[in-house]
Design a protein around this nucleic acid. Structure first.
Lengths: 246, 246
DNA sequence: AAGTGGTCTAGACCACCGA
DNA sequence: CGGTGGTCTAGACCACTTG
């Protein structure tokens, strides 16, 4: 832990600068798993900040799994960072890129319609509300990966009808640009067998195993904003998630 | 938000008392989704605590999804609490109980042996290390739900060999009693088809869909401590998870 | 301009742990 | 015992939102 510059308001809050510095030391191997990190008092002395500021940096790193603390002993570098950050809500596009696969979408259907009972229930809409329904075939490196249907309240996506949905278009990037962000999602996964349409679009035999994913996403204020039902080819897709706390 | 007693050191830290009070008001319906919660300054005034203390209560409730904040506007009650707390590592036993199903286990096999290559890789063990291998059939309300194999480093579970593994025995409760806690887990899910042994134990036809779950659990210090591979009957089990942050 | 959350300070006492 | 993290105080200035 060298005395690199950390002091001034160079745009970034102090605690974030400290956090990044510690993170860098772990990543670069300067500090090893099990090593003790300097105490809150030591950090605040060394970098001329208050103890609460150093504390905030350490606590965030603990929450993110880089460090762990033991009462009365100290703060230590965690042993193996479990797949950093994959606790977040991911989009198909990001997901594929992360795996080094080139994502692609083919729009099969795209309609503006009255929300049916299921959509109203999931998205908590009133009778008469309109929704956009997007049916897409998802490709990875040009091969069919998943058949996906997304339903969103129409007011979130005005103008989307004129948007090209093919190629590497990401619905999530589109929403991000418009300032619409997810905060939380509830997701279920089950195993089903391919039938009818599904096997044709995905290029598998009827009876092949599929992973059925259903996801309801919420905005920051807790309002539901997207319901997705997607069928993934089991031989090409494995879902993973990191869980915290015991 | 009434002026109930909150002041003194009645065992519980101040910020936890405040947190619980706010949580109770949300649960009881006194405060509704979208309602503004008193500001940090207002809370600190009203309850005679410092702003940082009130802030700590609010920030924890935000992290847990009960509240959300908007810069310059205030702190608000979130709209729908997404399955409270199900971000955690769950055991089969807890999971079933949560769903109102009576869990049961039948031990099929239980051996102490040399760790093979896969076990060493997953659990980061050296050559020559011993592991305990537990094979169990999991029942819910008396019906087969899953076929599960767990592998643990032998030094975590000394004495387990003499333990009855049937009935409602929970490996996790056993470990909890011995002070061994999980902090984090990495889990993957995929869809497969039942074959051989699996279909017999689970009571399904070969070719029936199964949900294959693999989980690697870590202790607080980041050391891996259990690897589980479980096959769930797709018609009786749906996996769900809540994700944070977009 | 007034109110909010975001950051930060310079102290304090406590419970817990190790030597 | 000294050092650690856990809690807490009473202030401060900032950026942001709203009227």
């Amino acid at each position: 832990m060298e005395q690199t510059a950390i002091r001034p308001q160079k745009g970034l809050p102090l605690y974030l600068q400290l956090k990044q510095m510690i993170q860098a030391q772990i990543a670069s191997g300067v500090m090893h798993p099990g090593d003790r990190v300097p105490s809150e008092r030591e950090l605040s002395d060394r970098f001329g900040m208050s103890r609460m500021t150093a504390r905030q940096a350490l606590l965030e790193l603990v929450r993110e799994g880089f460090l762990y603390r033991e009462q009365g002993r100290g703060t230590f570098v965690a042993h193996r960072k479990v797949n950093q950050g994959l606790l977040g809500v991911t989009s198909f596009t990001d997901d594929m890129r992360l795996r080094g696969v080139v994502p692609e979408s083919v729009a099969l259907d795209q309609v503006l319609e009255l929300a049916d009972a299921e959509a109203r229930e999931q998205l908590q809409l009133d009778i008469g509300a309109m929704v956009v329904r997007l049916k897409r075939l998802r490709l990875g490196d040009g091969r069919p990966m998943a058949l996906e249907e997304a339903i969103l309240p129409a007011h979130f996506v005005e103008g989307l009808e004129d948007h090209p949905l093919d190629k590497d278009f990401s619905l999530y990037a589109y929403l991000r640009e418009r300032g619409i962000l997810f905060q939380r999602a509830h997701q279920t996964l089950e195993a089903v067998l391919a039938e009818g349409d599904q096997s044709q679009f995905l290029g598998v035999l009827p009876g092949a195993p599929l992973l059925l994913l259903e996801r309801l996403s919420f905005r920051q204020d807790g309002q539901p904003m997207e319901f997705v039902r997607a069928y993934y080819r089991a031989d090409r897709f494995k879902f993973f998630v990191d869980l915290n706390q015991g």
